[in-house]
Structure formats: C-alpha cells, structure tokens
C-alpha cells in the first residue's frame, strides 16, 4: 500500500436555510493514495460536490458550515490551516475541475487572463510574466485546443462547451497539482464530446502521475477512470473498494441498484432505476438514510446508523446485512 495523500474523516457539513439546518454531509470517510485514481459515485444531490468544496475550503459559508471532521493532506489538517498555508495548498496541492465549465469561467475576462492568474498564484515558485504566458499557451496546447494563441485571447462566450471544459482542464493541470478533483467534468457536455474529454483527462492524469478524485453518477464512467471506487448516498460513503473488487462483489443494496441502473449492451430495454429519490436533508431518515428505499431493509436499519464493516480485503461497507463479519 502506498502513501496516503488525502484522508477525509467523519466529515459533517450543515447548511443553514430559512427552514432550519440541512444536514448534508453525515460523516464522510474517504482516502486517496498517492497516484491513485478514485471514483466517487452517487445520485445528484448526495453531497459529492460539497465534499470536494470542503477539501479546497471553498464551500460558500454561510450558509454552508463544516461542523465536524478532518481533512488530512499529507497528514496535515486542511481545516485548521491559516489562509497563508491554505494558499499554498490550493493550485499546486489540490485543484478542481467544475461540473459546468460555463459557470466556472468568468464571463468578462479572457481565457488568457484567467489562466495566467491561475498559473501565477497556483503554481509553485514565482514565474516571470513571460514564463507564465508560455506555460499558459503550453497547457492550452496540451489539452489539444486548436490554435491556442487565439483561444488565449478569446472570451469564454466565444468557445463551445467542449472547448470551455478543455480550458478548465488546462487550468486545473497548469498548476501541476498533486491531487485533482474532477467534479462530473463531462456531465454538461454533448454525449459525443464526453468520451473525448474523458479520454484526454485520463491520458493527462496518467502522464503527470496526478492523483484524482473523479466524481460521477455513472458506474460506467468509473469503470474506465478509477482504481478505487467510493459509493455515496445522502451524505454518507456507504461502500468503498478497489474497482475490480467492487464490480465483482458489490455488497450494499444501493450499489446493486446503481449496477442495475447501468444500461446494458445486450438485452435491450431501459435500464432499471432505483425507486424513490434522495431524502430531504432538513429531516433525513433516522438510522441508515437509505432504508426507506432499500429493498432489504430490516427493523434495525431505521433505528441506528450502520457501522462501517471491513467486509473483505480492502472492501468496506456500511450496512447491517454484513454485520457478522466484523465480530470475528
């Protein structure tokens, strides 16, 4: 086992709204080894993006607030860092690709201006203006944008969605981060572009040896992109394992649901979904938050939170179905 790069432990986040407190993250546990590609899977609204924003400490606060937990980067807690120290983490420590490139790029500044700011403040060491510009154009070329010199002077509005996301990828990689947080980077793109962008991202990450947390709601994407998979549901990590292990022996009923939701190449028909939807965070279900939708729910599921069980080698699950195996 390699060195641990990032470790999130028992992370709780609340959002204050008019009606009360939304308990969005409910004790998230997750770790990333150096050089590892981690997939984080779950339905929309389950807290994936919130978790990532906590890692960079860019959660909009208020209304969001981290109430408990730790986020260790190389064994140093990000949450207790001062702004100076945080400044050094952002950029070349951790960088992030947002879900919607149109929202993530400032509409009134050129691609070049934004990219140069990112390189100037996000990179290690200080670079001259000329070096910054050279590196900016270099990264635009690296993400295979045609005519990078022209795109450098363009505004985001002049680019297509796919090109914008390439610009965002260029930004995120221009600081040579140790850890890249990729938040559903292809969700807002055309289906035909999605594959290209995924492949590009995979290739760049491999070339730079960057560790990645890849957020998606599709297990299919994870199968291509990740070494390790975490499944998240309503603010909890409910299952985590190496990819091969997870696809061979999934345990949690929710994971099963996700697997069934995968469109199949053979057999035809529309893939099965999971009945119901993500619960309200204002008043989440007691015990296991999945129990109202769970086909195998038992009485105790609504009474207490299932502990994380070490089910097999490098395979954790939070479900009462597998309780016995911890009591050895």
């Amino acid at each position: 086992m390699g060195e641990t790069l990032l470790e999130i432990g028992n992370l709780h986040v609340e959002f204050k709204v008019y009606e009360g407190r939304l308990r969005v993250l409910n004790g998230v546990n997750l770790s990333v080894q150096v050089g590892e590609r981690v997939g984080l899977v779950g339905e929309a609204g389950c807290g994936k993006t919130t978790t990532m924003k906590c890692v960079l400490k860019i959660l909009t606060s208020p209304p969001g607030k981290i109430t408990e937990g730790k986020i260790l980067l190389h064994d140093k807690d990000v949450l207790t860092m001062g702004s100076q120290e945080m400044q050094r983490v952002r950029g070349h420590g951790i960088s992030m690709i947002f879900q919607d490139p149109t929202a993530a790029l400032n509409p009134v500044f050129t691609v070049g201006d934004q990219l140069m700011s990112v390189i100037k403040y996000g990179s290690k060491g200080s670079l001259s203006k000329k070096e910054i510009k050279k590196r900016a154009i270099g990264t635009l070329r690296e993400v295979r944008l045609p005519d990078p010199e022209r795109i450098f002077t363009n505004y985001p509005v002049q680019l297509s969605g796919g090109m914008r996301q390439r610009v965002c990828i260029a930004m995120a990689l221009s600081t040579e981060p140790e850890l890249l947080l990729a938040d559903e980077p292809t969700t807002s793109l055309d289906v035909t572009i999605q594959d290209q962008v995924l492949r590009l991202l995979n290739e760049l990450v491999e070339r730079h040896g960057t560790s990645v947390i890849f957020i998606t709601h599709s297990l299919g994407v994870v199968r291509e992109m990740a070494d390790r998979v975490y499944v998240m549901y309503a603010g909890n990590i409910i299952e985590g394992a190496r990819k091969e292990e997870l696809f061979a022996n999934w345990l949690h009923p929710y994971t099963l649901g996700l697997m069934n939701a995968l469109p199949k190449l053979t057999g035809g028909g529309i893939a099965e979904g999971i009945p119901g939807r993500i619960p309200e965070y204002l008043d989440p279900p007691s015990g296991c938050r999945f129990h109202p939708r769970c086909p195998r729910a038992m009485q105790q599921c609504s009474q207490s939170i299932p502990p994380v069980v070490h089910a097999a080698d490098d395979h954790d699950v939070a479900c009462f179905l597998y309780r016995g195996e911890t009591d050895e």
């Binding site: 924003k53 960079l56 860019i58 909009t60 702004s83 400044q87 050094r88 983490v89 952002r90 950029g91 070349h92 960088s95 992030m96 947002f98 919607d100 929202a103 993530a104 790029l105 400032n106 509409p107 009134v108 500044f109 934004q114 700011s117 990112v118 403040y121 996000g122 965002c168 930004m171 600081t175």
Partner: peptide
C-alpha cells in the same frame, strides 16, 4: 456564489484580487 469565484479562490488567487477584479467587474 458563482462557480467562477469558487474556482478562482480554489486555485489560490488571493482573496483581494478575486474581490476587486474577478467579482467586481462582472
């Protein structure tokens, strides 16, 4: 609350620059 502000902050662009340049102009 826009992503581009979170993004600029997340890349380590200093708070003051984010506020006076990337937030104020738009």
């Amino acid at each position: 609350r826009k992503d581009y502000i979170a993004s600029a902050k997340g890349f380590g662009v200093p708070e003051r620059l984010v506020m006076f340049k990337y937030l104020l102009k738009p």
